Simulated assay, not measured.
Amino acid sequence: MSFLDRFTAKGLIVLAAATSAAILGGAFIFQALGYAPCKMCLWQRWPHAIAVVLGGAALATQRRLLSWLGALNMTVSAGLGIFHSGVERKWWDGPASCSGGGVGDLSVEDLLAQINQAPLVRCDEIPWRMSDMIPLEFLDLTMANFNAIISLGLIVLWVCAARKTG
């Protein structure tokens, strides 16, 4: 009997959704501490927000499909985390623009004011890594790395929940 076999489908869903909620909370805490998120960091928050909603819906309805959607959703999250990790490590190129939005109907003055007020956050720079706190090389993990690793674990939780849900 594995560790996850001890949980009911409901327990697995609660654990998965609560973990996503904790990741979101952690992201907002880092942001409050002055670590402004890049565009890819913001992208990585969406699957976790969706997971919280899916968790609530899955608990309310006991539908197996919602657990499978949770697993698919976390696959997207893991993919985003892996992609962002590669961009940070300069293994591949990321998006050409990692901050700002469309120009729309802004005047030149309004656009310049918006640019000057917005923090410039690059997706290919690492603002924080675990090895800054604990000086061990194998702990050279970034927030994107943690998102990828935790999201891979959450896929397992959602799949186990889906297999147990009736």
Rank of each mutant, 00 (worst) to 15 (best):
Ala60His: 07
Phe3Leu: 13
Ser77Asp: 09
Ala16Ile: 05
Phe7Tyr: 15
Ile149Glu: 02
Thr8Asn: 06
Cys160Gln: 13
Cys41Thr: 11
Ala21Pro: 01
Met1Lys: 09
Arg89Val: 04
Leu141Tyr: 08
Leu80Lys: 02
Pro127Leu: 04
Leu4Phe: 08
Leu139Ser: 08
Trp91Cys: 06
Glu125Met: 09
Glu125Gln: 15
Ile134Trp: 14
Leu12Ser: 07
Gln114Trp: 06
Ser99Gln: 10
Arg163Phe: 08
Gly166Ile: 07
Ala9Val: 05
Cys38Leu: 03
Asp93Val: 02
Ala113Met: 00
Gln31His: 15
Leu42Gln: 12
Ala118Thr: 15
Glu125Phe: 09
Gly86Trp: 01
Asp124Lys: 11
Ala36Gly: 11
Ser67Ile: 07
Val103Glu: 06
Ala96Leu: 10
Ile23His: 04
Ala27Phe: 15
Ile134Cys: 03
Ile82Ala: 13
Gly26Gln: 06
Ala144His: 05
Ile50Thr: 11
Ile115Met: 06
Val53Asn: 02
Trp43Lys: 00
Thr75Ala: 15
Ser20Val: 02
Trp128Arg: 12
Asp140Trp: 02
Ala96Trp: 12
Ser77Phe: 02
Glu125Ala: 11
Ala118Asp: 07
Gly94Ile: 12
Arg122Trp: 14
Ala36Phe: 14
Gly26Arg: 05
Leu33Cys: 14
Ser2Met: 07
Glu109Ala: 13
Asp110Thr: 06
Leu72Met: 10
Leu65Met: 10
Asp105Ile: 01
Ser97Trp: 09
Val52Pro: 01
Ile23Ala: 11
Ala17Val: 04
Met1Arg: 09
Leu65Arg: 13
Leu24Glu: 04
Ala51Val: 04
Ile149Val: 15
Ala118Gly: 03
Val108Arg: 08
Leu139Ile: 07
Arg163Gly: 01
Leu65Pro: 00
Gln62Thr: 11
Ala71Pro: 00
Gly102Ile: 02
Gly26Lys: 07
Pro95Gly: 07
Leu120Ile: 13
Met130Leu: 15
Ala9Asp: 12
Leu112Pro: 00
Arg63Leu: 13
Phe3Tyr: 13
Pro135Met: 05
Leu112Gln: 10
Leu80Asp: 01
Thr19Asn: 05
Leu33Gln: 15
Ser99Thr: 13
Asp5Lys: 15
Gly79Asp: 02
Leu80Pro: 00
Ala22Met: 11
Pro119His: 10
Lys90Cys: 00
Trp46Asp: 01
Gly153Val: 12
Val159Met: 10
Gly94Asp: 04
Ile23Leu: 15
Leu66Cys: 09
Ile150Cys: 06
Ser77Glu: 04
Ser77Cys: 13
